[in-house]
Design a protein around this nucleic acid. Structure first.
Length: 280
DNA sequence: CCTTCTCCCTGCAAGC
DNA sequence: TGCTTGCAGGGAGAAG
């Protein structure tokens, strides 16, 4: 499910119901997700008040009173749902449940269990092993064309693989990497080191634009992903290339036969979608 | 260091 | 219908 826009949507939904509230009941219904759930998870967070719900890359950071941060990553199939009042029966793969003093239930659901939770002391969160090497947030001011070009310099891999590297830019995933490259008119197969100057500026702009627009649309709902409220995101209807193999490229005015349409290739084991005519 | 490959896990769709 | 196969939004760790 989740790339940066989806995680940001989840963050907003959780912030609405958790911030300022005390966690009056906590349960972990199995001992592990991708990694073991900390043994003292329940006892350490029960009774604490949520100060804020933040995000770094694709990680949620639920800051609790008393110098403690609950870190959460949704992996491929993780989702949070919020229920006010009486919650419906637990479903398979509902792994973690939080209840607030205001009677709200928050459930973490994750069929594939590639997600995880961890606890971190607040002053150590930025050096947590999962967060320490992350690159800049793509929507913040320090993510610039000059910075991106400096990171891609000397790299022989494809630009698409490079922007999926969380050390280069934090929070990019497969969908928005494809969509960003399409918008920038850059082939995903292009050698990373050749993305310099105006090309790098164009790519940074495209990344910022597509992520901001996706957040504005409530993220993308593929498969069963929803916002925590249960509402669907709708940015998936605006994909230009992702999942559109064989369809006409929305940027080409010529017919399908002469443009070739949207192609699917595999790079570093992940599907890439692009238009070979419009992206160079 | 850089890059690619494999694996973790379940569910779904497509193909036979 | 039922089985097999491939694929899926992520990322760690090993291997080259």
């Amino acid at each position: 499910m989740p790339e940066l826009p989806e995680v940001e949507t989840v963050r907003q939904g959780l912030a609405d119901v958790l911030e300022g509230q005390r966690l009056v009941a906590v349960s972990a219904r199995r001992p592990d997700l991708r990694f073991p759930i900390p043994a003292d998870f329940q006892s350490r967070i029960t009774g604490r008040r949520v100060a804020s719900v933040g995000r770094r890359a694709k990680f949620l950071l639920i800051r609790l009173d008393g110098d403690l941060v609950l870190l959460s990553h949704l992996g491929m199939s993780g989702s949070f749902r919020i229920f006010s009042g009486e919650a419906p029966p637990l479903q398979p793969h509902d792994h973690i449940e939080l209840q607030t003093g205001a009677g709200v239930t928050v459930r973490y659901h994750d069929p594939r269990r590639f997600g995880f939770v961890d606890l971190s002391a607040a002053e150590d969160t930025s050096v947590h092993p999962m967060l320490a090497k992350l690159g800049p947030e793509p929507l913040e001011a320090n993510f610039t064309g000059r910075y991106l070009a400096s990171q891609l310099r000397g790299r022989a891999t494809s630009v698409k693989a490079a922007i999926l590297d969380q050390r280069v830019v934090a929070g990019m995933g497969n969908i928005y990497a494809c969509e960003s490259l399409f918008r920038a008119g850059i082939s995903p197969r292009r050698t990373a080191a050749t993305v310099v100057g105006k090309r790098a500026e164009a790519l940074v702009s495209a990344i910022r634009d597509v992520l901001a627009q996706a957040i504005g649309a409530g993220g993308s709902s593929l498969r069963d992903h929803r916002q925590p409220s249960g509402e669907l995101g709708y940015f998936q209807h605006r994909f230009a290339v992702y999942g559109c193999a064989g369809q006409p490229c929305p940027g080409c005015t010529c017919d399908l036969a002469s443009s070739g349409g949207v192609r699917r290739i595999v790079q570093a084991g992940r599907s890439t979608f692009y238009c070979a005519k419009r992206q160079r």
